[in-house]
Each structure stands twice: as structure tokens, then as C-alpha cells.
Design a binder for these strands. Structure first.
Lengths: 348, 348
DNA sequence: TTGAAAGCGCTAACAC
DNA sequence: GTGTTAGCGCTTTCAA
């Protein structure tokens, strides 16, 4: 590999001139610049990343801690990752893919491998937070810990998403609505989005005085079926669902159909999921989209902002947007319903 | 950040001694080693990755070119990625996540950011291959280009997978079998796995003299429905399916059921997909598993092998394994069928 | 507008 | 068993 010295020699200038020509940090005469560019092309020169990192204390690499346990919401995760990579490359950064492990975090940061970090799948009381603080690296969390104080976070506003989804159904005249939610693992791991989603849903239902039910649901056909049966058992009058579980969604729909309740004829559905999932269902599903890729990009934008100017933490909640796809049926409201709900499951 | 010099001073030894203590490349007295370790702990020292890369011409990072276009087989991709990351960390490497772009490949390799590369989603005539060659970096491809000569590749043996899946159905007595295959985009992009799969399927069917049909299928409910209708139209006597399309799978099953052909009562199914997908279907599906995570790990193993000893390229095809899950019904063979098939779609 | 040269932090001869 | 030191390739003062 050619070095900056080779380029300098070939162009008949000094190393520093080449360096400055590359960085643009001082004016270079047209003639010199031309010679340098020529030499660079001829030699196929690229600065050595390690040498540069050593000299500048920057790597132009950002670390991405992503949950690679497969099974849950792979779709969404992939989209976050894609957004982060896109955003990063747009800003001239590469992405080092890290596992969800505080040990890795310590190692990577203190050996100066990355300039900053994006941390995905943040839990309420995330074990990586102390390590993050210790590292004193700029960082953006995707998700919301219990105490986001001083941290930079971005996420979909799941509380509003839950409310928007519920309200769409309420406004359509439905009076008995179930939330088919995230898997119990997610809830018990205290990844806050499930709780926020539930809170928003419950809030909207109570405000409107409609009957509601919250059912955590495993990410499989069996889980979906079990949840559907539970819903039908506890709330036979159900006419509408909010589904916040990408994997279960198709199975929920078909189980309801098997039970003689077609979507959208007998049962209306609003999903909370990525757009492409909602579109690819047997029945296109009206949904509150999770703009995962956009959120990934925003995370990187926030990060570059932080690097330029280490301000105080900022929490950015992306507003949910509902897209109609015809899975909600307007019903003539048969007078107001009663508030019942499943107190056990519905605690915020 | 503490440097090796700080450690040396604190331990009362020279830098090189610290370096050697760390690398174990020469014997260090028990006493000295103890003092050094102590100093390292107290200072929280970690070698600076860039400095080390500069001095050793190694980064301990491998590049992973992964297709981040969402939509197709996200599941499988995630599992490959997870396998690569796991394998890498097991061998002391970190992973730089790169987009599928020759420009990126050139940049990353010639600036010495990585020691080696794993290239996913290889097409028959992949544009990245020249850049790869140019880079003279050890590389392992996941997938198979048209001419793998001199390259290291690993993939599932899709030809045998197709054959195994078909044979399972043939052996169960089925005489009219359809392959619901990969999306046309995949086929036309000439990602060879779809072709190999088809070849294996067709070969087995022709060898057994059964009727068969090959139908590329879009990765959506609509695509699945269209394909099912096409199958029923062209081959109404169909009693068995091989499905090589993870996204379409659930919709194929339900569309058949809607057409009055339940799985496995009227229609037997063997899928070619990751295990967790087959398990999470409404009906557990007998499948030839795609051991994506294992393949990812193998890729890294091959890579470390190559780095240690740049041998000639080696193509490793992982043997398919069929797992019974009850979606195949044994039928009393009603005498041998005729070879018809869809010549247009079934060309190898 | 350009050069010379001192590091950045580490490894690995080459000494002893 | 340990120390000295010359790089690795780049950036950035300091000088001109």
C-alpha cells in the first residue's frame, strides 16, 4: 500500500502538503493540488485508518450495540440497523457491530475503536448504562430507560402510538377493544416500549369509557392462537384489536377468521408495526407505522450533533402516524360501553 | 486514557516489557508480571487500537458485507449476521458492518480498516468480486458465484436441499408436487441459491417420474395467494408443496386452506427455511432447515484459517437436514405419475 | 503557499 | 529476564 510519503515524493511536495491537500485545512495552489491528485490516483493511495486514528484521536467509526438474539422483531431490528448504517455512511462514518454486552462496550470504548455509540433495545434499568457513562463517549440510545436524565434518546412515541391506535377504533364506534401486545419476555425484561404502548392504549380507552383488555402475546402461531382464545373468552363482545406484535399479527388475523370473525367485517384491526409488515398481510392492515429506519437515521444525526457539541441529553420521541389500509370498519355506535378491562394485565 | 508508557512507569519497567507481558511473546518473571498487571488494573489501561494497527498492520476487525435492503429473508440475514458476529468474537475479532457496495469495499480494504472480509448474498456474477480480488484480503463468501474458482465459499447445499425436500414428498407417495420458490427478484438477480434449489428439486422429481411445477413467488400475502392460485390452476391434482420462501409460507398455507385444502390433510408441505420459522407456523412445518447462524460461524472459521494460511479457495457446502414436524402426510401411492412440469419456469 | 519535524501509542528487532 | 529504540503512517505545530 502506498503511503502519504510515496504520494509526496511522486508529486514533488512534502508530506504535510499532501495531508493538507487532503484535509483542505489550508490553501493549496491549483498547480500543486493537481499534481497531488494525480499522484494519488496513480498510486491508488488511501490514508491508513489506524495511523490517522493515532494522530487524530478519531476513528470515524461508530459502534452499534444491536440485539442479535433472533426471534423477536427481527424486522424492526434490521430496519433500525439499516437506518443507522445509512445515516452513518451519509455522515462519513462506518459502523462497528457490537453485541449487547457491557464487557464489549468497555473494551471497544477504552481502546478507542469508536468515536461514539448507538445503543439499541434499551431496557428500563439497562446494565450498559454505567459502562456508557464511564466511557464518556457520545452516545444515543434507541429506546428509553427508566431515567433518561442527561442521556440522548430517540424512539417512537409509543404512548401516543397506543393512544392513536385505540382512538382510531374508538372513533370508528368500537366499544370493546383488545390490545394484543408484545411477548411477555419483552414486558418482563422491562423494555419500556411495551409499557408505554400499554399506557397509551389504556389511557385512551379509559378516557373514552370503552371496554378494553390487554393480552401479552408470544411471537408464534401458538402464542397468537392462545391470545385470541383468551380474548374471545374474556371479552366475547370484542369488535376491535390493536396488535403490537409483528410476528403474531398474521396468526391473530387468521385465528379470528377461523373463529368466524373475519377482518375487517366482524373484527377491526389496527397494528403497530413497520409499514412493510402491515402491507404484506393477507388483509392489508391499517397501522401506526414504526418508522424504524428513520429512527436509526435520526439516532446518527443526533450523534453527530453530540460529537460536534456535547450538549445536554435530549429525548426525541417521534410522532406516530396512522396509515389507513382498510382493516377498520366504521360501526354505528350502540351507545357507550362500560369500563371493565383486565386489571392484572393492564397495569401501566 | 492511560498509555503503555504510563503503565511502564507505574510498574517500574520498560514499555517493551509491558508490551511483551501483554502479548506473551517472551517470558516475564512472575514478580514483574504481577506489578504490570497491577498497574494495568489501577490505570484501567487498554491498548489503543489504532496505534496497535499501525504497528502490527492488523486490526483484529473483519468486514461483513451484508444486504440491508429489508424485505427479503430478513430472518435468514439476521441469523447469518449473528453467526458471523458470534464466530468473530469467539476468535477475538470485531465486525465492521458494511453495505453491499464495491466502493465501500475498496475504501475499507485499502485504508486497512479490516483484516479480512465476509461477503454475504453473493450473486452469480457479483460486481464485488473484482474489487475483492484487487484487495488481496482474505475473504469468505456466503453463497456461491458462478465461478468460485480460487475463492472460499460456504453455503447450504441448496441443490441437495431441493432434492431432499422433494424426495421426502415423493417417498410419502405424492405424485404432483409444486415448488413455491424465491421471489422473482432473487431469481433474476441471479443469486444462485434459487437456481440450485430448483435444480435439486427438479432433478429429484424427474428421477422419480412425478409431476412437478415451479412457481417463483413474491414475498407477500398477495404474492403467495397468486402463486397458490397459479398452482391450483395449472396442477389441480397437487397434493404436496416444497416452499422455499419464508415470508410467503404462512400465507401459502392459509390460502390453500381457504381453497379447501388443509395442511397436512389435503396438502403436504416441506419448507426450506430457518428452524424457528418452521416452528412458528400455524401448523408446525416439516422443513429442511437453513442453518444460517452455523453457516455464519463457519464462514469466520474459514476466514481465520485463511488468515493463518492463505490456501487455495475451498467451497464448503453444508449438508441439508430434514426435520419432521408433521406437515407431510403419507399417501397410498396411486401408481406412478407422468412427468409434465412447467418447462418455462423449471429450466435449471 | 510550502516544508521540516515532533509526536500520536504501540510492537519488535537488537542489545545486554 | 529486561531495556533501548527505530519505526508503523499520519496530522499539525512551528518556521519560512
Amino acid at each position: 500500500m502506498a503511503t502519504i510519503g510515496d504520494v509526496a515524493r511522486r508529486a514533488g511536495v512534502s508530506q504535510s502538503t499532501v495531508s493538507y491537500a487532503l484535509s483542505g485545512k489550508r490553501p493549496i495552489s491549483e498547480e500543486t493540488r493537481r499534481r497531488i491528485e494525480r499522484a494519488i490516483d496513480e498510486l491508488g493511495y488511501r490514508p491508513h485508518a489506524g495511523a490517522r486514528a493515532l494522530a487524530t484521536a478519531r476513528t470515524d467509526v461508530i459502534g452499534l450495540m444491536a440485539p442479535l438474539r433472533t426471534g423477536v422483531d427481527v424486522h424492526v431490528i434490521m430496519q433500525f440497523v439499516a437506518g443507522v448504517v445509512t445515516g452513518a455512511s451519509r455522515s462519513g462514518y462506518d459502523v462497528l457491530l457490537l453485541t449487547q454486552d457491557e464487557g464489549v462496550l468497555d473494551r471497544v470504548t477504552s481502546s478507542s475503536m469508536v468515536d461514539a455509540l448507538v445503543v439499541m433495545d434499551v431496557e428500563n434499568d439497562d446494565k450498559r448504562l454505567p459502562a456508557l457513562e464511564r466511557s464518556r463517549q457520545p452516545a444515543v440510545l434507541i429506546g428509553l430507560p427508566a431515567d433518561p436524565h442527561g442521556l440522548s434518546c430517540v424512539d417512537l412515541d409509543f404512548a401516543r402510538a397506543g393512544a392513536v391506535a385505540a382512538r382510531r377504533l374508538i372513533d370508528a364506534g368500537h366499544r370493546a377493544i383488545a390490545l394484543v401486545g408484545s411477548p411477555v419476555e419483552v414486558v418482563s425484561r422491562h423494555t419500556s416500549y411495551a409499557e408505554r404502548m400499554t399506557r397509551g392504549f389504556v389511557g385512551a380507552c379509559e378516557a373514552a369509557g370503552v371496554t378494553y383488555l390487554v393480552v401479552p402475546t408470544a411471537a408464534s402461531a401458538a402464542g397468537a392462537a392462545a391470545s385470541v382464545d383468551r380474548v374471545l373468552g374474556m371479552m366475547p363482545e370484542v369488535t376491535a384489536l390493536v396488535v403490537h406484535n409483528e410476528v403474531a399479527l398474521p396468526h391473530v388475523i387468521s385465528r379470528f377468521r377461523e373463529a368466524g370473525r373475519g377482518v375487517p367485517e366482524q373484527v377491526s384491526v389496527v397494528a403497530v408495526c413497520p409499514e412493510d409488515v402491515a402491507v404484506s398481510m393477507p388483509v392489508p392492515v391499517t397501522s401506526v407505522d414504526i418508522p424504524a429506519e428513520a429512527i436509526g437515521r435520526i439516532a446518527v444525526e443526533m450523534l453527530t450533533g453530540l460529537m460536534a457539541d456535547p450538549a445536554r441529553g435530549e429525548v426525541r420521541l417521534v410522532s406516530p402516524r396512522l396509515t389507513e389500509r382498510g382493516s377498520v370498519r366504521e360501526v354505528s355506535a350502540p351507545s357507550g360501553g362500560t369500563v371493565t378491562g383486565d386489571p392484572a394485565a393492564a397495569t401501566p
